[in-house]
């Protein structure tokens, strides 16, 4: 870990300003991911701007009938929130499938969206990694890639986004609200928030330097059976090999987002349209352009089977 300076931001605008004036700065909220990355010198910010005291920790209904979740709401509190449990069961289930109780107590809503990949080569500073060191190459391609992405990959990177929460947010069409250093407010649909790796896997979201997430807004409830199915090698405290977040309506229509398969929460409009025809049709649409490795080809079959189980359970 490199030495760094630290400040507590006094307002959203001040935080954004401070971050924009120092390109080597980072916001810190729960720190459950950032501090580990700093200890390993994968992240080497010279300045941390603590946003924990900005009051962004409330959950309130929106005028449209949805829910505005403050950026600093802890994962535990969000999962346990009565409205979330009642109207957005998918989100609550995804949250409790992630990490451990201790981590969820500290991890925040915005931080969860911004957590970085668990690719083991990204985590080892001796290994080439385009995400950590642009232009150095990708060690995972041709290496140990069982956990890696099968779709939306590039020749530069096959890392996945590790979040469970983000899969639910994607299926629920959440909107990420931000403030830029110039004070302007923005609303970014979650579909546009995370980027595919392309040639620039080190750029993971559309956020600009200094742009601060203030809230994540959920549209009005969509009803249906909401199921989050996380598949993993051990029963708890493991990142998803794949996960399926689905909302299935009584008529068999619905929406599905998939985790553990791409650089971002993976949702394909065409797959939603195929849901009522069954898992095979939907999975075909999800993975039409898949480029798996020999080690992770199984994920495509696994998603199809898991989705099949989810649909069957929803129709139960």
């Amino acid at each position: 870990m490199r030495a760094f300076t630290y400040e507590r931001a006094s307002s959203v605008e001040a935080a954004a300003n401070a971050a924009s004036s120092n390109r080597q700065s980072k916001f810190i909220a729960g720190g459950t991911n950032l501090l580990d990355l700093m200890k390993l010198e994968i992240e080497t910010p010279t300045h941390l701007i603590d946003v924990n005291g900005l009051g962004l920790d409330t959950i309130e209904p929106t005028a449209e009938g949805g829910l505005r979740i403050g950026a600093l709401v802890r994962n535990t509190d969000l999962a346990a929130h009565e409205t979330v449990r009642r109207d957005y069961g998918l989100l609550s289930r995804a949250l409790v499938a992630g990490a451990s109780g201790q981590l969820r107590n500290v991890a925040t809503t915005a931080g969860n969206l911004l957590q970085r990949t668990r690719c083991p080569y990204f985590y080892d500073t001796n290994q080439p990694c385009n995400k950590r060191q642009p232009g150095s190459g990708c060690s995972a391609i041709g290496g140990f890639s069982r956990q890696h992405a099968v779709v939306g990959v590039s020749d530069a990177c096959i890392a996945t986004h590790p979040s469970d929460m983000a899969i639910a947010m994607r299926a629920l069409d959440a909107v990420v609200e931000t403030v830029k250093p110039d004070g302007s407010h923005h609303a970014i649909p979650i579909a546009d928030f995370h980027r595919l790796p392309g040639e620039t896997p080190h750029i993971e979201t559309v956020l600009e330097q200094g742009e601060l997430i203030t809230a994540v807004v959920l549209p009005p409830p969509v009803g249906g059976r909401q199921i989050y199915r996380k598949v993993r090698d051990r029963a708890s405290y493991a990142f998803a090999i794949v996960s399926v977040g689905a909302v299935i309506q009584l008529d068999g229509t619905g929406r599905v987002a998939v985790g553990g398969v791409a650089h971002k929460p993976w949702r394909v409009e065409g797959a939603d349209a195929e849901l009522s025809r069954g898992a095979r049709s939907a999975a075909s649409a999800l993975f039409a352009d898949a480029r798996p490795t020999e080690q992770n080809r199984f994920k495509i079959d696994l998603v199809e089977r898991t989705l099949g189980a989810v649909i069957a359970e929803a129709r139960g």
């Binding site: 069957a312 359970e313 129709r315």
Partner: peptide, 8 residues
């Protein structure tokens, strides 16, 4: 598999 999941 469907039956298995329905019975669950």
């Amino acid at each position: 598999m469907s039956d298995a999941y329905r019975s669950r």
